[in-house]
């Protein structure tokens, strides 16, 4: 009789298991929705509110005056003008930061890689990690003291670039070191065994082999600083005109978003500028993911 009972117990058991299975499946689905909903909602909102403002003049004209915006809003038209001063300013500032941060970051990353486990290298690595945790506004203050007050004698793109370069450094250092660690040591040996001097092995074998890792790190660092606002407020200030002079105040897209936020007539431009910035950062992220995947 016990033999007959056993399958019945199994059925009971399996019904419970099926229930548990379903519960977990739904649990996972709900948690996934919670995870992805912020990004979907953000992008949705930005596109919904911002896309109407995106047209050719958005990319070719400078920011409108409050009066122009007010007239347009009053008559129910699209706000004229664009944010080209911010876009070009962002490019200028980010380009300068990259020029400062990439060589220094890669050199330090190589140094850390070559001196694994040494005291001095460990110290540098820890300091670089701490640097990553410094609030960006503090970096803005430092750049203000160093560059705005002493070098350019006024708000400047250069000052903003210095602040952002300091933000980029720890990211590039880390990614360089991690990339180099992934390259098999046998390649280094192969180069040295051919009678190639060490520095040439690094330049011509290790760096080309790790180029996708290095560029991924650089792109992620750039997308990290693209949206920084606080340090730029203290250093580059903003500029209603297009500016190419690195010693002069310069605009940037996140600074413009802050300006638009403070001007009730320009609210519509907040969304389109944010959409642009978000799209740009997202594109960089996707490109760097692609490069990393190819590796």
């Amino acid at each position: 009789m016990e033999n007959i009972n056993t399958p019945i117990e199994l059925t009971k058991n399996s019904a419970f298991r099926a229930l548990k299975d379903k519960a977990f499946l739904w649990g996972v689905i709900i948690v996934s929705i919670i995870t992805i909903s912020p990004i979907v909602l953000i992008i949705g909102k930005l596109v919904w509110k911002g896309v109407s403002q995106i047209n050719l003049s958005f990319f070719t004209e400078i920011t409108p005056s409050t009066f122009e915006a007010m007239t347009a809003v009053a008559s129910g038209e699209v706000i004229p003008g664009g944010i080209v001063n911010g876009i070009l300013g962002t490019f200028l500032i980010v380009f300068l930061s990259a020029i400062i941060a990439i060589p220094v970051g890669i050199l330090i990353g190589l140094f850390l890689f070559e001196n694994q486990g040494k005291r001095y290298a460990n110290l540098i690595r820890s300091l670089s990690d701490i640097l990553q945790g410094v609030p960006s506004i503090v970096l803005g203050l430092i750049a203000y003291l160093w560059v705005v007050k002493n070098v350019t004698q006024g708000y400047s793109a250069l000052a903003g670039s210095v602040a952002l370069a300091i933000m980029m450094l720890p990211l590039i250092i880390r990614s360089t070191e991690e990339t180099m660690k992934m390259i098999p040591g046998t390649l280094k040996e192969a180069g040295l065994a051919l009678g190639v001097p060490y520095y040439k092995v690094i330049l011509k074998v290790l760096i080309p082999s790790g180029i996708s890792g290095l560029s991924t790190g650089i792109l992620l660092a750039i997308s990290r600083i693209l949206g920084e606002t606080a340090p730029l407020m203290l250093t580059t200030l903003g500029n209603p005109m297009i500016n190419w002079d690195v010693t002069a105040p310069t605009s940037a897209v996140p600074l413009l978003i802050w300006d638009f936020y403070n001007d009730p007539n320009m609210v519509d431009l907040i969304w389109s500028s944010s959409l642009f910035l978000m799209g740009f950062v997202l594109t960089l992220n996707i490109i760097s993911k692609r490069i990393a995947a190819k590796q």
């Binding site: 098999p184 040295l192 051919l194 180029i211």
Partner: peptide, 19 residues
């Protein structure tokens, strides 16, 4: 550098330069 041009070396795992 000169020495290693006179005495070449091949390793356990094939290691052609991937790039």
């Amino acid at each position: 550098i000169q020495l290693r041009r006179k005495i070449g070396m091949v390793f356990q795992r094939p290691n052609p330069f991937p790039t």
